[in-house]
Nucleic acid binder design. Structure first.
Length: 417
RNA sequence: GUGGAAUUAGCUCAGUUGGUUAGAGUGCCAGAUUGUGGCUCUGGAGGUCGUGGGUUCGAUUCCCAUAUUCCACCCCA
Protein backbone atom coordinates (compact mmCIF):
# COMPACT_ATOMS: atom_id res chain seq x y z
CA UNK A 1 0.00 0.00 0.00
CA UNK A 2 1.52 3.26 -1.07
CA UNK A 3 -1.46 5.57 -1.34
CA UNK A 4 -2.83 6.56 2.03
CA UNK A 5 -5.56 8.85 3.21
CA UNK A 6 -4.29 12.43 3.29
CA UNK A 7 -2.86 13.69 6.54
CA UNK A 8 -5.55 14.72 8.94
CA UNK A 9 -8.33 12.80 7.21
CA UNK A 10 -9.69 9.45 8.22
CA UNK A 11 -12.01 6.73 7.08
CA UNK A 12 -15.13 6.05 9.06
CA UNK A 13 -15.54 2.31 8.79
CA UNK A 14 -18.64 0.11 9.16
CA UNK A 15 -17.71 -0.54 12.78
CA UNK A 16 -18.28 3.16 13.47
CA UNK A 17 -20.95 4.30 11.04
CA UNK A 18 -23.88 3.09 13.15
CA UNK A 19 -22.77 5.41 15.94
CA UNK A 20 -22.42 8.30 13.50
CA UNK A 21 -25.86 7.65 12.04
CA UNK A 22 -27.34 7.47 15.52
CA UNK A 23 -25.85 10.78 16.63
CA UNK A 24 -26.82 12.53 13.39
CA UNK A 25 -30.37 11.20 13.47
CA UNK A 26 -30.73 12.21 17.10
CA UNK A 27 -29.49 15.67 16.26
CA UNK A 28 -31.91 16.02 13.34
CA UNK A 29 -34.70 14.84 15.56
CA UNK A 30 -34.02 17.39 18.27
CA UNK A 31 -33.56 20.19 15.74
CA UNK A 32 -36.87 19.30 14.10
CA UNK A 33 -38.68 19.47 17.42
CA UNK A 34 -37.20 22.92 17.91
CA UNK A 35 -38.51 23.74 14.43
CA UNK A 36 -35.08 24.19 12.89
CA UNK A 37 -34.93 23.10 9.26
CA UNK A 38 -32.00 21.52 7.51
CA UNK A 39 -29.93 23.46 5.01
CA UNK A 40 -27.16 22.09 2.79
CA UNK A 41 -24.58 24.39 1.32
CA UNK A 42 -21.58 23.96 -1.00
CA UNK A 43 -18.36 22.41 0.25
CA UNK A 44 -16.33 25.24 -1.26
CA UNK A 45 -17.05 28.92 -1.62
CA UNK A 46 -15.34 31.98 -2.97
CA UNK A 47 -12.38 32.68 -0.73
CA UNK A 48 -13.57 36.18 -0.05
CA UNK A 49 -16.63 34.88 1.79
CA UNK A 50 -14.48 33.44 4.55
CA UNK A 51 -12.04 36.33 4.59
CA UNK A 52 -14.91 38.68 5.27
CA UNK A 53 -17.12 36.32 7.22
CA UNK A 54 -14.68 34.58 9.52
CA UNK A 55 -12.34 37.54 9.81
CA UNK A 56 -8.93 38.39 8.42
CA UNK A 57 -7.24 38.44 11.82
CA UNK A 58 -8.23 34.91 12.78
CA UNK A 59 -5.85 31.97 12.68
CA UNK A 60 -8.33 30.20 10.44
CA UNK A 61 -8.08 32.74 7.66
CA UNK A 62 -4.45 33.60 8.17
CA UNK A 63 -3.01 30.13 7.98
CA UNK A 64 -5.53 27.30 8.01
CA UNK A 65 -7.60 27.60 4.84
CA UNK A 66 -7.53 25.12 1.98
CA UNK A 67 -7.49 27.64 -0.84
CA UNK A 68 -7.03 26.90 -4.54
CA UNK A 69 -7.62 28.52 -7.91
CA UNK A 70 -10.19 26.83 -10.10
CA UNK A 71 -9.72 26.52 -13.85
CA UNK A 72 -11.33 29.89 -14.36
CA UNK A 73 -8.73 31.50 -12.14
CA UNK A 74 -11.14 32.18 -9.29
CA UNK A 75 -9.90 31.73 -5.75
CA UNK A 76 -11.93 29.07 -3.97
CA UNK A 77 -11.70 27.75 -0.42
CA UNK A 78 -12.91 24.56 1.20
CA UNK A 79 -15.16 25.74 4.01
CA UNK A 80 -13.34 26.01 7.35
CA UNK A 81 -16.64 26.43 9.22
CA UNK A 82 -20.33 26.41 8.46
CA UNK A 83 -21.74 29.78 9.43
CA UNK A 84 -20.36 31.93 6.61
CA UNK A 85 -21.77 29.66 3.91
CA UNK A 86 -25.15 29.42 5.60
CA UNK A 87 -25.34 33.21 5.90
CA UNK A 88 -24.42 33.53 2.21
CA UNK A 89 -27.17 31.07 1.28
CA UNK A 90 -29.65 32.89 3.52
CA UNK A 91 -28.97 36.15 1.71
CA UNK A 92 -28.60 34.78 -1.81
CA UNK A 93 -31.87 32.85 -1.69
CA UNK A 94 -33.94 35.54 -0.05
CA UNK A 95 -34.61 33.61 3.13
CA UNK A 96 -34.54 37.00 4.81
CA UNK A 97 -37.93 37.55 3.13
CA UNK A 98 -39.36 34.35 4.57
CA UNK A 99 -41.07 34.54 7.94
CA UNK A 100 -38.60 35.64 10.57
CA UNK A 101 -36.90 34.26 12.55
CA UNK A 102 -35.34 31.71 10.20
CA UNK A 103 -34.06 28.67 12.04
CA UNK A 104 -31.60 26.49 10.15
CA UNK A 105 -29.50 23.50 11.05
CA UNK A 106 -26.77 21.62 9.22
CA UNK A 107 -24.52 18.59 9.40
CA UNK A 108 -21.40 19.07 7.33
CA UNK A 109 -17.69 18.57 7.03
CA UNK A 110 -15.12 21.35 7.40
CA UNK A 111 -11.52 21.72 6.36
CA UNK A 112 -8.69 23.40 8.21
CA UNK A 113 -5.04 23.03 7.45
CA UNK A 114 -3.76 22.43 10.97
CA UNK A 115 -1.19 20.48 12.87
CA UNK A 116 -2.75 17.19 13.89
CA UNK A 117 -3.62 16.28 17.43
CA UNK A 118 -6.07 14.31 19.47
CA UNK A 119 -9.57 15.27 18.45
CA UNK A 120 -8.29 17.56 15.75
CA UNK A 121 -8.52 16.71 12.07
CA UNK A 122 -7.98 18.55 8.81
CA UNK A 123 -11.35 17.32 7.66
CA UNK A 124 -13.81 17.24 10.52
CA UNK A 125 -17.55 17.19 10.98
CA UNK A 126 -19.81 19.66 12.64
CA UNK A 127 -23.47 19.80 13.45
CA UNK A 128 -24.70 23.35 13.83
CA UNK A 129 -27.64 25.71 14.08
CA UNK A 130 -28.15 29.28 12.99
CA UNK A 131 -31.06 31.43 14.09
CA UNK A 132 -31.55 34.61 12.03
CA UNK A 133 -33.73 37.55 12.90
CA UNK A 134 -34.01 37.81 16.65
CA UNK A 135 -31.87 40.08 18.79
CA UNK A 136 -33.58 38.92 21.95
CA UNK A 137 -31.74 36.85 24.53
CA UNK A 138 -34.61 34.37 24.28
CA UNK A 139 -33.12 33.35 20.93
CA UNK A 140 -29.76 32.70 22.62
CA UNK A 141 -31.55 30.66 25.24
CA UNK A 142 -33.37 28.73 22.54
CA UNK A 143 -30.23 27.46 20.80
CA UNK A 144 -28.62 26.67 24.15
CA UNK A 145 -31.67 24.75 25.28
CA UNK A 146 -31.61 22.77 22.04
CA UNK A 147 -28.11 21.64 22.99
CA UNK A 148 -29.16 20.73 26.51
CA UNK A 149 -31.94 18.53 25.18
CA UNK A 150 -29.65 16.94 22.60
CA UNK A 151 -27.03 16.10 25.22
CA UNK A 152 -29.65 14.82 27.61
CA UNK A 153 -31.19 12.51 25.03
CA UNK A 154 -27.76 11.16 24.16
CA UNK A 155 -27.16 10.43 27.84
CA UNK A 156 -24.15 12.71 28.02
CA UNK A 157 -23.10 13.74 31.51
CA UNK A 158 -20.41 15.97 32.93
CA UNK A 159 -20.56 18.50 30.20
CA UNK A 160 -20.49 22.07 31.39
CA UNK A 161 -21.90 25.19 29.83
CA UNK A 162 -19.76 28.30 30.09
CA UNK A 163 -21.17 31.63 28.99
CA UNK A 164 -19.83 35.11 28.63
CA UNK A 165 -20.62 38.38 26.93
CA UNK A 166 -18.03 40.10 24.80
CA UNK A 167 -20.07 43.25 24.25
CA UNK A 168 -21.00 45.09 21.11
CA UNK A 169 -19.47 47.73 18.83
CA UNK A 170 -20.72 50.31 21.30
CA UNK A 171 -18.96 49.11 24.42
CA UNK A 172 -16.08 47.01 23.09
CA UNK A 173 -13.73 49.76 21.81
CA UNK A 174 -13.61 51.46 25.19
CA UNK A 175 -13.01 48.13 26.88
CA UNK A 176 -10.22 47.19 24.46
CA UNK A 177 -8.45 50.44 25.30
CA UNK A 178 -8.86 49.66 28.98
CA UNK A 179 -7.48 46.18 28.40
CA UNK A 180 -4.49 47.43 26.47
CA UNK A 181 -3.77 50.06 29.09
CA UNK A 182 -3.83 47.28 31.65
CA UNK A 183 -1.48 44.95 29.77
CA UNK A 184 0.92 47.57 28.40
CA UNK A 185 3.10 47.82 31.53
CA UNK A 186 3.18 44.02 31.89
CA UNK A 187 3.94 42.99 28.31
CA UNK A 188 7.24 41.41 29.29
CA UNK A 189 5.48 39.01 31.64
CA UNK A 190 3.30 37.52 28.92
CA UNK A 191 4.18 34.64 26.61
CA UNK A 192 5.59 35.57 23.20
CA UNK A 193 2.38 34.69 21.49
CA UNK A 194 0.41 37.00 23.70
CA UNK A 195 2.85 39.82 23.13
CA UNK A 196 2.03 39.43 19.47
CA UNK A 197 -1.68 39.33 20.18
CA UNK A 198 -1.49 42.58 22.12
CA UNK A 199 -1.73 44.66 18.95
CA UNK A 200 -3.59 42.25 16.73
CA UNK A 201 -6.30 40.89 18.98
CA UNK A 202 -5.77 41.66 22.67
CA UNK A 203 -8.99 39.87 23.61
CA UNK A 204 -7.40 36.52 22.87
CA UNK A 205 -4.81 36.99 25.60
CA UNK A 206 -7.58 36.23 28.06
CA UNK A 207 -8.09 32.85 26.45
CA UNK A 208 -4.42 31.86 26.45
CA UNK A 209 -3.75 28.51 28.09
CA UNK A 210 -0.07 29.22 28.58
CA UNK A 211 -0.73 32.34 30.57
CA UNK A 212 -3.81 30.95 32.30
CA UNK A 213 -2.04 30.78 35.64
CA UNK A 214 -0.45 34.17 35.15
CA UNK A 215 -1.75 36.60 37.78
CA UNK A 216 -1.64 39.39 35.22
CA UNK A 217 -4.10 37.56 33.00
CA UNK A 218 -6.18 36.33 35.91
CA UNK A 219 -6.67 39.83 37.21
CA UNK A 220 -7.18 41.51 33.86
CA UNK A 221 -10.32 43.56 33.44
CA UNK A 222 -13.02 41.57 31.66
CA UNK A 223 -15.46 42.78 29.05
CA UNK A 224 -18.29 41.37 31.08
CA UNK A 225 -17.45 43.84 33.82
CA UNK A 226 -17.53 46.70 31.36
CA UNK A 227 -20.63 46.17 29.28
CA UNK A 228 -22.84 48.98 28.09
CA UNK A 229 -26.32 49.14 29.57
CA UNK A 230 -27.95 47.30 26.66
CA UNK A 231 -25.42 44.48 26.63
CA UNK A 232 -25.60 44.09 30.38
CA UNK A 233 -29.36 43.86 30.26
CA UNK A 234 -29.19 41.34 27.41
CA UNK A 235 -26.80 39.17 29.38
CA UNK A 236 -28.83 39.40 32.59
CA UNK A 237 -31.96 38.35 30.74
CA UNK A 238 -30.18 35.38 29.23
CA UNK A 239 -29.07 34.23 32.68
CA UNK A 240 -32.61 34.57 33.96
CA UNK A 241 -33.94 32.56 31.03
CA UNK A 242 -31.37 29.80 31.52
CA UNK A 243 -32.26 29.66 35.20
CA UNK A 244 -35.92 29.48 34.28
CA UNK A 245 -35.24 26.50 32.01
CA UNK A 246 -33.39 24.81 34.84
CA UNK A 247 -29.95 24.73 33.22
CA UNK A 248 -26.72 24.95 35.11
CA UNK A 249 -23.97 27.11 33.72
CA UNK A 250 -20.88 28.98 34.68
CA UNK A 251 -20.14 32.57 33.79
CA UNK A 252 -16.58 32.64 32.50
CA UNK A 253 -15.28 36.04 31.50
CA UNK A 254 -12.25 34.50 29.83
CA UNK A 255 -14.17 32.84 27.03
CA UNK A 256 -13.72 34.92 23.90
CA UNK A 257 -13.91 32.45 20.97
CA UNK A 258 -11.62 32.44 17.99
CA UNK A 259 -13.86 33.89 15.32
CA UNK A 260 -14.18 37.61 14.74
CA UNK A 261 -17.89 37.80 14.14
CA UNK A 262 -19.18 37.26 17.64
CA UNK A 263 -21.01 39.95 19.60
CA UNK A 264 -22.55 39.82 23.05
CA UNK A 265 -23.23 36.21 24.02
CA UNK A 266 -20.52 33.60 23.54
CA UNK A 267 -20.67 30.12 25.00
CA UNK A 268 -18.93 26.78 25.06
CA UNK A 269 -19.82 23.30 26.19
CA UNK A 270 -16.70 21.87 27.74
CA UNK A 271 -15.75 18.38 28.86
CA UNK A 272 -13.00 17.38 31.21
CA UNK A 273 -12.53 14.00 29.62
CA UNK A 274 -11.32 14.79 26.12
CA UNK A 275 -8.06 16.24 27.36
CA UNK A 276 -6.96 19.53 25.90
CA UNK A 277 -9.56 19.37 23.16
CA UNK A 278 -12.28 19.82 25.74
CA UNK A 279 -14.45 22.19 23.75
CA UNK A 280 -17.15 20.05 22.23
CA UNK A 281 -19.37 22.85 21.15
CA UNK A 282 -18.94 26.57 20.70
CA UNK A 283 -21.23 29.34 19.65
CA UNK A 284 -22.63 32.74 20.23
CA UNK A 285 -24.35 35.76 18.83
CA UNK A 286 -23.16 37.48 15.68
CA UNK A 287 -25.30 40.52 15.11
CA UNK A 288 -22.89 42.16 12.66
CA UNK A 289 -22.02 39.32 10.32
CA UNK A 290 -24.98 39.44 7.95
CA UNK A 291 -24.52 43.12 7.29
CA UNK A 292 -20.79 42.52 6.89
CA UNK A 293 -21.62 40.03 4.14
CA UNK A 294 -23.83 42.48 2.31
CA UNK A 295 -27.25 41.88 3.81
CA UNK A 296 -29.47 44.12 5.84
CA UNK A 297 -28.49 44.38 9.46
CA UNK A 298 -29.88 41.17 10.95
CA UNK A 299 -29.24 39.80 14.42
CA UNK A 300 -28.28 36.13 14.60
CA UNK A 301 -27.13 33.47 17.01
CA UNK A 302 -25.77 29.97 16.45
CA UNK A 303 -23.31 27.29 17.37
CA UNK A 304 -21.25 24.45 15.97
CA UNK A 305 -20.74 21.07 17.58
CA UNK A 306 -17.76 18.85 16.78
CA UNK A 307 -18.98 15.37 15.90
CA UNK A 308 -15.61 13.64 16.36
CA UNK A 309 -15.22 15.18 19.80
CA UNK A 310 -18.78 14.42 20.77
CA UNK A 311 -18.27 10.76 19.86
CA UNK A 312 -14.99 10.69 21.81
CA UNK A 313 -16.75 12.11 24.81
CA UNK A 314 -19.64 9.65 24.55
CA UNK A 315 -17.15 6.81 24.33
CA UNK A 316 -15.13 7.99 27.31
CA UNK A 317 -18.33 8.20 29.35
CA UNK A 318 -19.24 4.68 28.25
CA UNK A 319 -22.48 5.80 26.71
CA UNK A 320 -23.98 2.89 24.80
CA UNK A 321 -23.95 3.52 21.08
CA UNK A 322 -25.28 1.34 18.27
CA UNK A 323 -22.73 -0.94 16.65
CA UNK A 324 -22.68 -3.22 13.65
CA UNK A 325 -25.72 -5.47 13.60
CA UNK A 326 -26.02 -8.83 11.87
CA UNK A 327 -28.92 -9.69 9.59
CA UNK A 328 -32.23 -10.94 10.93
CA UNK A 329 -31.85 -14.10 8.92
CA UNK A 330 -29.37 -16.02 6.81
CA UNK A 331 -30.65 -18.58 4.33
CA UNK A 332 -28.38 -21.59 3.93
CA UNK A 333 -28.76 -23.23 0.53
CA UNK A 334 -27.29 -25.92 -1.71
CA UNK A 335 -26.16 -25.65 -5.31
CA UNK A 336 -29.54 -26.92 -6.54
CA UNK A 337 -31.58 -24.63 -4.31
CA UNK A 338 -29.54 -21.44 -4.49
CA UNK A 339 -31.98 -19.76 -6.88
CA UNK A 340 -34.98 -20.46 -4.68
CA UNK A 341 -33.03 -19.13 -1.72
CA UNK A 342 -32.24 -15.93 -3.59
CA UNK A 343 -35.92 -15.44 -4.37
CA UNK A 344 -37.03 -15.99 -0.78
CA UNK A 345 -34.27 -13.69 0.42
CA UNK A 346 -35.38 -10.96 -1.97
CA UNK A 347 -38.98 -11.22 -0.79
CA UNK A 348 -37.89 -10.98 2.85
CA UNK A 349 -35.88 -7.86 2.07
CA UNK A 350 -38.89 -6.37 0.32
CA UNK A 351 -40.76 -7.02 3.59
CA UNK A 352 -38.26 -4.87 5.51
CA UNK A 353 -36.26 -7.72 6.93
CA UNK A 354 -32.47 -7.72 6.83
CA UNK A 355 -31.67 -10.97 5.10
CA UNK A 356 -28.75 -12.64 3.45
CA UNK A 357 -28.45 -15.71 1.31
CA UNK A 358 -25.45 -17.52 -0.07
CA UNK A 359 -23.66 -15.63 -2.83
CA UNK A 360 -20.41 -17.59 -2.64
CA UNK A 361 -19.35 -21.12 -3.51
CA UNK A 362 -19.27 -22.07 0.15
CA UNK A 363 -20.03 -25.46 1.57
CA UNK A 364 -22.95 -26.02 3.91
CA UNK A 365 -20.68 -26.01 6.91
CA UNK A 366 -18.92 -22.85 5.81
CA UNK A 367 -22.26 -21.11 5.37
CA UNK A 368 -23.19 -22.00 8.95
CA UNK A 369 -19.93 -20.60 10.22
CA UNK A 370 -20.39 -17.45 8.21
CA UNK A 371 -23.93 -16.94 9.47
CA UNK A 372 -22.65 -17.28 13.02
CA UNK A 373 -19.70 -15.00 12.39
CA UNK A 374 -21.76 -12.12 11.00
CA UNK A 375 -24.21 -12.39 13.87
CA UNK A 376 -27.31 -13.57 12.03
CA UNK A 377 -30.19 -13.83 14.50
CA UNK A 378 -31.87 -16.70 12.69
CA UNK A 379 -30.99 -19.15 9.96
CA UNK A 380 -33.02 -21.48 7.82
CA UNK A 381 -31.69 -24.31 5.72
CA UNK A 382 -33.32 -24.43 2.32
CA UNK A 383 -33.00 -27.81 0.60
CA UNK A 384 -35.18 -29.85 -1.71
CA UNK A 385 -37.31 -31.09 1.19
CA UNK A 386 -38.12 -27.59 2.37
CA UNK A 387 -39.03 -26.47 -1.12
CA UNK A 388 -41.33 -29.47 -1.57
CA UNK A 389 -43.09 -28.99 1.78
CA UNK A 390 -42.99 -25.16 1.57
CA UNK A 391 -41.95 -25.09 5.22
CA UNK A 392 -38.67 -24.52 7.03
CA UNK A 393 -37.11 -24.95 10.45
CA UNK A 394 -36.23 -21.49 11.69
CA UNK A 395 -33.23 -21.75 13.99
CA UNK A 396 -32.48 -19.10 16.57
CA UNK A 397 -28.70 -18.83 16.70
CA UNK A 398 -28.43 -17.50 20.26
CA UNK A 399 -29.70 -20.72 21.81
CA UNK A 400 -30.10 -23.15 18.92
CA UNK A 401 -33.85 -23.60 19.27
CA UNK A 402 -35.81 -24.35 16.14
CA UNK A 403 -39.43 -23.93 15.19
CA UNK A 404 -41.27 -25.16 12.12
CA UNK A 405 -42.82 -22.46 9.94
CA UNK A 406 -44.61 -22.21 6.64
CA UNK A 407 -42.44 -20.27 4.20
CA UNK A 408 -45.23 -17.72 3.86
CA UNK A 409 -45.14 -17.02 7.62
CA UNK A 410 -41.41 -16.37 7.76
CA UNK A 411 -41.49 -12.57 7.37
CA UNK A 412 -44.23 -12.07 9.92
CA UNK A 413 -42.63 -14.31 12.48
CA UNK A 414 -39.24 -12.60 12.24
CA UNK A 415 -40.76 -9.16 12.42
CA UNK A 416 -42.64 -10.06 15.58
CA UNK A 417 -39.71 -11.69 17.37
C1' G B 1 4.31 26.48 14.02
C1' U B 2 7.39 24.20 18.76
C1' G B 3 9.10 19.93 21.74
C1' G B 4 8.98 14.47 22.56
C1' A B 5 7.76 9.23 21.21
C1' A B 6 6.57 5.70 17.64
C1' U B 7 6.26 3.12 12.60
C1' U B 8 7.54 -5.06 11.28
C1' A B 9 0.97 -9.45 8.40
C1' G B 10 -6.02 -6.73 8.19
C1' C B 11 -5.31 -5.88 13.94
C1' U B 12 -2.05 -6.26 18.62
C1' C B 13 3.01 -6.98 18.95
C1' A B 14 7.83 -10.14 19.20
C1' G B 15 12.62 -10.30 16.77
C1' U B 16 17.57 -9.81 14.56
C1' U B 17 24.81 -7.75 19.41
C1' G B 18 24.23 -6.43 10.89
C1' G B 19 24.28 -12.71 7.99
C1' U B 20 20.40 -17.88 4.01
C1' U B 21 13.36 -18.88 2.84
C1' A B 22 11.27 -12.40 9.02
C1' G B 23 7.83 -14.80 13.62
C1' A B 24 3.52 -15.24 17.38
C1' G B 25 -1.43 -14.32 18.80
C1' U B 26 -5.81 -12.81 16.62
C1' G B 27 -8.64 -12.18 12.14
C1' C B 28 -9.46 -14.07 7.01
C1' C B 29 -10.07 -18.59 3.53
C1' A B 30 -10.37 -23.89 3.34
C1' G B 31 -10.72 -28.89 5.45
C1' A B 32 -11.73 -32.57 9.84
C1' U B 33 -16.96 -38.68 5.26
C1' U B 34 -22.72 -37.29 3.01
C1' G B 35 -27.98 -31.20 5.75
C1' U B 36 -26.60 -27.53 11.32
C1' G B 37 -22.64 -22.45 13.90
C1' G B 38 -19.89 -21.21 18.61
C1' C B 39 -15.03 -25.12 21.32
C1' U B 40 -10.98 -27.94 19.25
C1' C B 41 -7.50 -29.69 15.47
C1' U B 42 -5.07 -29.27 10.49
C1' G B 43 -3.71 -26.58 6.26
C1' G B 44 -3.52 -21.98 3.24
C1' A B 45 -3.26 -16.94 1.79
C1' G B 46 -1.30 -12.38 3.54
C1' G B 47 4.81 -8.42 4.83
C1' U B 48 9.29 -4.39 -1.02
C1' C B 49 10.13 -4.68 8.33
C1' G B 50 6.71 3.57 6.63
C1' U B 51 9.58 5.89 2.23
C1' G B 52 14.31 7.61 0.09
C1' G B 53 19.40 7.93 0.51
C1' G B 54 24.18 6.53 3.02
C1' U B 55 27.85 3.09 5.56
C1' U B 56 28.87 -2.24 4.54
C1' C B 57 30.75 -8.10 1.11
C1' G B 58 25.72 -7.95 3.15
C1' A B 59 20.77 -3.45 6.34
C1' U B 60 14.36 -4.90 8.82
C1' U B 61 18.72 -4.06 12.32
C1' C B 62 23.66 1.30 12.18
C1' C B 63 23.57 6.76 10.23
C1' C B 64 20.94 10.89 7.70
C1' A B 65 16.68 12.81 5.56
C1' U B 66 11.53 12.55 4.79
C1' A B 67 6.38 10.96 5.51
C1' U B 68 2.70 9.44 8.76
C1' U B 69 0.58 8.64 13.66
C1' C B 70 0.37 9.62 18.87
C1' C B 71 1.46 12.88 23.30
C1' A B 72 2.38 17.86 25.29
C1' C B 73 2.15 23.17 23.69
C1' C B 74 -0.44 26.73 20.18
C1' C B 75 -5.28 27.03 18.44
C1' C B 76 -9.97 25.38 17.78
C1' A B 77 -14.84 21.68 16.69
Amino acid sequence: MTIRAPKGTRDILPAETPAWQYVEEKYSSVCSRFCFQEIRVPTFEQTELFQRGVGDTTDIVQKEMYTFNDKGGRSMTLRPEGTAGVVRAYLENGLSSEPSPQKLYYILNNFRYEKMGKGRYREFNQMGCELFGSAESTADAEVISLLFLFFRELGLQEINLKINSIGCPKCRPAYLELLKDYFRPHLGDLCLNCQDRFERNPLRILDCKEDAENEIVKNAPLQIEHLCVECQEHFNKLCTELNNLGFEYEIDGHIVRGLDYYTRTVFEFVSNNVGTQGTICGGGRYDGLIEELGGQSTPAVGFALGVERLLMELKSQNVKLPSQAGPDIYIVSFPDTINQAAKICFDLRASNITAESNITARSFRAQMKYADRIGAKYIVVLGEDEIKSKSVDLKRMSDGTEIKLELTDLANYIREN
